[in-house]
Write a protein that binds this DNA or RNA. Sequence first.
DNA 1: TCTACTGTACTATATAAGTAGTACACCGCA
DNA 2: TGCGGTGTACTACTTATATAGTACAGTAGA
Lengths: 116, 116
Amino acid sequence: MTDFRDDRAIYLQMADRICDDILYGKYTAGERVPSVRELSVMLGVNANTVVRTYDALTSDGIIQTRRGLGYFVTDDARDRILSVRRKRFMEEILPEVARQARLLGISADEILEHLK
Amino acid sequence: MTDFRDDRAIYLQMADRICDDILYGKYTAGERVPSVRELSVMLGVNANTVVRTYDALTSDGIIQTRRGLGYFVTDDARDRILSVRRKRFMEEILPEVARQARLLGISADEILEHLK
DNA sequence: TCTACTGTACTATATAAGTAGTACACCGCA
DNA sequence: TGCGGTGTACTACTTATATAGTACAGTAGA
């Protein structure tokens, strides 16, 4: 049960990591992701929690299941992730960062300093 | 029960808002914050949830209680909040934003564009 | 003193999240 | 065919959140 935040559901954090890995190129289209039991051991998490993660990713069209074989990355997984992530980044994360910076008296230049 | 995210405990989101209000200057040092029952009605939340929020803020030294009177903003509340927020902003939020931007192919200039 | 507010402390219920374990059906391969 | 790995579907238990309601003690002011 290593390095998971306690302020967010583990199965959602795991889903984000899988998506990160797909963006990084660790898992490519058509490729198989670790099995439920494999990943549960790898991350020290219960198998049912992995199932919840894969269920979520499946309903988002990121992966698809082949009974008896495993879960596989869909062809448009990368595009779907990029689309959702970009939208959230622009419409939620950046505005919140701007608000926090204003509240904390941190200048845009100071922020730019730390973005490299 | 208006505008609370479902990915984080309500009592923690409420605590963040109280801190925001203190930074904004809505509540100043020595000033009284809304009573448990008042705030529960204002936000459409159960009174026990407000108690949890105020318990958390109390143990963080942001507010202090006077039985029969209410909860009051401590003298160093603002400093405490700024300290914690700045640390988290610099060490957690900004690095995560940088990572996301790199992953999504968003340039620093493009980010700076949205920070105003 | 009385009243109306305050914090405080309970009990009870419901749901989500996570863990633990078992069982069964499907698939590829030897 | 049999075996091992796979997804799938359960039950059971625990904890954290959140709600609902009640009760009691401290405080200020009429």
